[in-house]
């Protein structure tokens, strides 16, 4: 196990590379989903206020 973690002596390069990649990719995903949900909520509340008979405009 420790041999695996040591990555043949390259641990200080391999693990940060993977960690940063996972972090950034997760981060971008989280940010994307967050603004998506935010706009979704805002749109929902606006549409409720809006006239119900008005056709959905894109």
């Amino acid at each position: 196990m420790s041999e695996f973690l040591a990555m043949g002596g390259y641990a200080q390069f391999v693990w940060p590379a993977f960690m940063i990649s996972i972090l950034v990719l997760l981060g971008v995903t989280v940010l994307t989903m967050r603004s998506y949900r935010r706009e979704q909520a805002m749109l929902a509340s606006l549409e409720k206020k809006n006239d119900a008979t008005a056709p959905a405009e894109y």
Binding site: T32, E39, L43, L46, N50, E57, Y58
Partner: peptide, 21 residues
């Protein structure tokens, strides 16, 4: 993520139009 962001933009557009209305 591209699709999700595009959906977000489409919604932003609608929000803008609804607000203007």
């Amino acid at each position: 993520l591209l699709f999700v962001r595009m959906r977000t933009e489409v919604m932003r557009n609608r929000i803008r139009r609804l607000r203007m209305k």
